[in-house]
């Protein structure tokens, strides 16, 4: 007979799964480390523009996010369709920004306060009017470090 039909006894060898938990744990730790728990639900469109001159932000705790965009469809009945800003998880007015910044400053502490950056996450379709109002407010509030959030250019 051919050698392929050789009988090898009755034992059926099992693959050892002893190392499976280790592999899974490794993956688990990876995801735990890279995870940023999403703390605010976006209530407006936020399609960031793309740019090439990007700087990465080093300390996440020293950043406060200001979202600007058109309200999503389900909120349009209540808030209209013109661009608005969102601080934390709710819609806000431009003159709410100083209080928002002050709260963040208190949370971060006196020593690190000068290193706070405001990240402006602005939808690309929004016109400059509201952005300009916010920039003016930031300047008046003494918040000079600003980051125009953008996506890396795909090329």
């Amino acid at each position: 007979m051919s050698k392929f039909s050789k009988k090898r006894g009755k034992s059926n060898p099992k693959i050892s799964t002893a190392s499976l938990p280790d592999i899974i744990f490794m993956l688990l730790f990876f995801f735990m480390v890279v995870t940023v728990l999403r703390n605010s639900e976006l209530k407006l469109t936020n399609n960031l523009p793309s740019a090439s001159e990007l700087t990465k932000i080093e300390a996440k705790s020293l950043v406060n996010n200001i979202f600007i965009g058109k309200p999503l469809e389900k909120y349009q009945a209540q808030y209209g369709s013109s661009p608005r800003l969102q601080l934390g998880d709710k819609f806000a007015e431009v003159n709410d920004i100083p209080i928002f910044l002050e709260q963040h400053r208190v949370k971060v502490g006196e020593a690190k306060a000068p290193r706070i950056t405001s990240a402006l996450k602005v939808d690309g379709e929004v016109t400059m009017g509201i952005v300009q109002d916010i920039k003016t407010t930031l300047r008046k509030a003494g918040q000079y470090r600003v980051l125009y959030s953008a996506k890396p250019k795909g090329n």
Binding site: A51, L54, R139, Y144, V146, L147, Y148, S149
Partner: peptide, 11 residues
């Protein structure tokens, strides 16, 4: 979190 970093002038 990437973007263009700017420093605004004082008002």
């Amino acid at each position: 979190d990437k973007g263009i970093r700017v420093v605004l002038p004082p008002w």
